[in-house]
Simulated assay, not measured.
Amino acid sequence: MFGKKVLSFVDFDDQKYQLISDENNTGVASGTPWQKGPIPLDYAITGLGPIFVRIAKFDYFKEVLEKIYEFKEISQEAAFHLFEVGEGGNGGQVIVEDSPNLHQAQQGFGTVHHVAFRVEDSAALQEWIERYDMFRLPSSGYVDRHFFESLYARVAPQILFELATDGPGFMGDEPYETLGEMLSLPPFLEPKRAQIEKLVRPIDTVRSTNEFIKE
C-alpha cells in the first residue's frame, strides 16, 4: 500500500492491526526499538503510524484534515487516500479509506477509542484550543492527565482525535529501568489503589530482572 510493505492481522478481540515497514521511509525519524527484548532489532517495532481511518463521509473528513490540521493529500490508491503533515513519513501520515456504505461504529472490543497526535507543550496546546475555537470545532478544552496534558475533539461521527503534550512524562514517579512494571496511577486515584488493583487483570510486566533470548 502506497509503496509500503504491510502485514495485516487481527487479535483475539478481532481488533485489526497492521505492521508497516519503515524500509525507505523518509520524514519523521523512527523511534528506538526495545534493545533487550526477544525480537531481533531488525524486525522490532520502532513506532506508531501511519494512522488508518475508515470513514463514510470522506469529503467532510478530508476538509477537516486539510483546513484544521493542515494535512495534504499526497496519494490515492482506489478508495484509500494518503494524507501527510509536517515532516511526513510513516510518523506523520494518515491513511483514510473512503467507505460511503460504512455502518456507524459502536465502542467495544475490537475497536479503537481514539488516536493521539503529539504537541510540544502547554503553549502549543493552548494554540490548538484557540484554533478549534476559530473553526468552531467543539472540544473538551484543556485536560490535565497528570503524565501529560490533552485536548480532545470529535472530528467526525465516532472519530475522536486527541492532542497530547510530550511532558511531564511517565518517569516522574518511577525510573526508566522499571518503567511500566507496576500500575502507575495519578495522585487523585492513589487512595483507590487497592480497589483498582483487585479489578485489573494480572499481567506479567516485569522485564528489568528478565533476560530474553532473541528469536
Rank of each mutant, 00 (worst) to 15 (best):
Ala56Arg: 15
Ser75Met: 06
Leu48Val: 14
Phe80Lys: 12
Val112Leu: 12
Val85Glu: 00
Val53Asp: 02
Glu66Ser: 09
Pro38Arg: 12
Asn101Ile: 01
Asn90Ile: 10
Gln104Trp: 10
Lys57Val: 09
Ile95Tyr: 03
Gln104Ile: 12
Phe52Asn: 08
Pro40Cys: 07
Ile68Pro: 03
Lys62Gln: 15
Gly89Arg: 09
Ile68Glu: 04
Pro33Ile: 10
Phe83Val: 01
Gly49Ile: 10
Gln76Asp: 00
Pro33Asn: 10
Ala78Pro: 00
Phe58His: 11
Gly47Met: 04
Lys62Tyr: 02
Gly86Ser: 04
Glu87Ala: 15
Leu48Thr: 12
Phe58Cys: 03
Asn101Pro: 01
Leu41Asp: 13
Lys36Asp: 15
Gln76Phe: 01
Glu70Ser: 11
Gly91Ile: 03
Gly108Cys: 09
Ala78Thr: 06
Thr111Ile: 09
Val94Asn: 00
Phe109Glu: 14
Thr46Gln: 06
Gly86Asn: 09
Pro38Asp: 14
Gly88Met: 07
Asp59Tyr: 06
Lys67Tyr: 04
Tyr60Met: 12
Pro40Ala: 06
Arg54Gly: 08
Ala78Cys: 01
Phe83His: 02
Gly86Met: 03
Phe117Thr: 00
Gly47Glu: 09
Gly108Asp: 08
Pro33Gly: 08
His114Val: 04
Gly89Asp: 07
Phe83Asn: 02
Gly31Asn: 08
Ser75His: 11
Gly108Met: 11
Leu65Lys: 05
Ile51Ser: 02
Lys36Trp: 08
Val115Pro: 00
Arg54Phe: 01
His103Leu: 14
Tyr60Arg: 13
Val85Asn: 00
Ile74Met: 01
